[in-house]
Design a binder for these strands. Structure first.
Lengths: 340, 340
DNA sequence: AAATTTCTGATGCACGTGCCTCAAAATCTG
DNA sequence: CAGATTTTGAGGCACGTGCATCAGAAATTT
């Protein structure tokens, strides 16, 4: 019933607690033979280090930094809110969380920010920034210095196992499937609106979307992606132009994580009522849009889960333990007016 | 940067650590005035009890029992799997989990099982059983004895705030919305299959389903619920009879949490290919069915989340702390072949 | 065999809290 | 005011682990 302690381990291995301690914490000056004996005992007894007690002894505290883009609209605000909530929820685990804004389009400044972090400032960092060689290198050097790091929401190919976020191809495919089915038997074309096609996330969503739409709904054609660059005027003009040029549009897929502006523009236009509209990310705005029928469906990743998963992953890396895969997989969620 | 300790509290309140301790742990023999002083200091310093250290001192271990129905098919198996996984994941928190099978239709035996639990055996129980006066009373007495208890998946009206599970009306409504939209412009009727309409869960799903279908899809009519009682032969006969009697069926809603048997029977029948099929709960079987097109959509509650949420809730009750609402709300998830 | 080096054991303090005892101080009672 | 009672303080041990020191044992080299 009780978990074995280091004392039990020592007895079982026929060594002293001091030696067990040396082995557990990888200190040198222990014969291989003795190390093996201790490891055998660990296995035999099923010893699990009591991290609470260990942290207490070390008076260890975790400080995790969320490096988030400086720009952004509602989705980002939601993230910050959830980070603050997580800070409270994890308070009993001696975990502090901070948000640090970074210039997502300036790899150099991101890299130098990461370079400035020492293990004393932060036990871990969750980084939301597009992939770039500088950032990738900075992350590696961080890890070498003993600071945990996980890519957050935006992919970094280099470290896929530890990244926190959804499978964007699956998200795109899901959007296609729902949009297609909601269109019924209609045939026509689908407008796709993105913020920018530079990021890997957008590319993957588009890839998944096209593949699924092509396979399952031959009657529907996806139009080329419109890129808003986060500029409201530009958004308005490209959308109206696209609608003018294509009279057979039956659906709209808003791929970017900030849906407010494009959707506002669409709602202002005539004759777009019958269009099936799918967007990404739960925000106060998309919730309202679902409820009043401006959106038919929202594909989202649970912002709270994202944050908590990042925290748990960072803590696990810090502790040198492993998290449970299953728990940390972020699901592609589908939001309808009925399941908000 | 450091969290204040009981020592700091004592100094701030101008009392000794012993008195702080008496106040924190609600021991008597402290003047109200002193209690107030300490509480004021707690607030002022933002003191948060270090539960890890406290548990260490008490050498507290949690044992949580999941009381699950003896009968059941794949969904229940999934639950058990997740409970075992949670046991590992929570090992570092000194938490043990056990599964105890109960006779879900015998309130008396459930009540006597609950009555047999003492705080020494279990720090908390998650109970999956239909509502009944005996069970409700037994739960109350458990709580009085200092054993935490949460209703698990199946509702107990009496203690709604602490229950772990989805909003079944929302689940039913979501099923209706998807089924309706997937049917396109067709009109006809919808077959509804349940295990039994005795349980509150089924009633609520049906309620949500009917309301949504009625409001949004006047062209579709929901037929009366077919009850399988978990009996395969019976299931087969009622389904074939229903199909024979209604030639305008366009969709099927399998409301029970075990979809395997009904769906197997449907697949064996001719002419049911074009029907839109919606079922509940993710299991190896429903996953396969989604992939090969036997099911169009699955409404589910994440079994892993359910289990972990129950554990966290039980622990929080045990600790006398509060969990964060947001995190513990179980979402109505929608599964399509693209987002498995 | 002696000297040196490498390895191991014994011991003790620390972390923050719970819980216990004993004595001292404050308050109340008659 | 004395005596009884309630309230408070001081101190110490425990939980399981990390970390440090020092002495002694074992292995290796000279």
């Amino acid at each position: 019933m009780l978990r074995p302690t280091t004392k039990d381990l020592a007895k079982a291995a026929g060594v002293s607690r001091a030696t067990v301690d040396r082995v557990l914490n990888g200190r040198e000056g222990v014969k291989q033979k003795t190390v093996d004996k201790v490891n055998a005992a660990i296995k035999e007894l099923g010893f699990v280090r009591n991290i609470q007690a260990a942290n207490l002894a070390k008076s260890k505290r975790y400080r995790f930094v969320f490096a988030l883009p400086r720009s952004g609209d509602e989705f980002l605000r939601e993230l910050v809110r959830h980070i603050e909530e997580a800070e409270e929820a994890f308070a009993t685990d001696q975990i502090w969380c901070d948000v640090q804004r970074i210039d997502e389009n300036d790899p150099h400044s991101i890299a130098s920010f990461l370079a400035s972090l020492s293990p004393d400032d932060a036990s871990g960092v969750a980084i939301m920034a597009p992939e770039s060689p500088q950032v990738r290198d900075a992350i590696f050097r961080l890890q070498e210095r003993g600071v945990a790091a996980v890519p957050f929401i935006s992919d970094q190919t280099t470290m896929e196992t530890d990244s926190v976020g959804i499978d964007n191809r699956a998200a795109g495919a899901t959007a296609a499937l729902l949009l297609g089915r909601f269109c019924g038997a209609a045939n026509g074309s689908v407008m796709v609106i993105a913020e920018s096609m530079q990021s890997r996330d957008s590319l993957e969503r588009r890839l998944g979307f096209d593949k699924e739409l092509g396979q399952r709904f031959p009657a529907l054609t996806a139009l080329p992606s419109l890129e808003t660059y986060g500029d409201e005027e530009r958004t308005e003009s490209i959308i109206t132009n696209m609608l003018r040029a294509n009279h057979n549009i039956v659906g709209i897929y808003i791929m970017s994580s900030e849906a407010r502006v494009p959707l506002k523009i669409l709602s202002g236009l005539q004759e777009t009522d019958r269009l099936v509209r799918v967007a990404h990310e739960r925000t106060p705005f998309t919730e309202k849009a679902l409820n009043n029928g401006q959106l038919d469906c929202v594909i989202t990743q649970n912002a709270g889960h994202l944050v908590r998963s990042a925290v748990r992953k960072l803590k696990a890396i810090s502790d040198g333990s492993s998290t449970h895969r299953q728990q940390e997989q972020i699901r592609v969620e589908i939001l309808l007016p009925t399941n908000l």
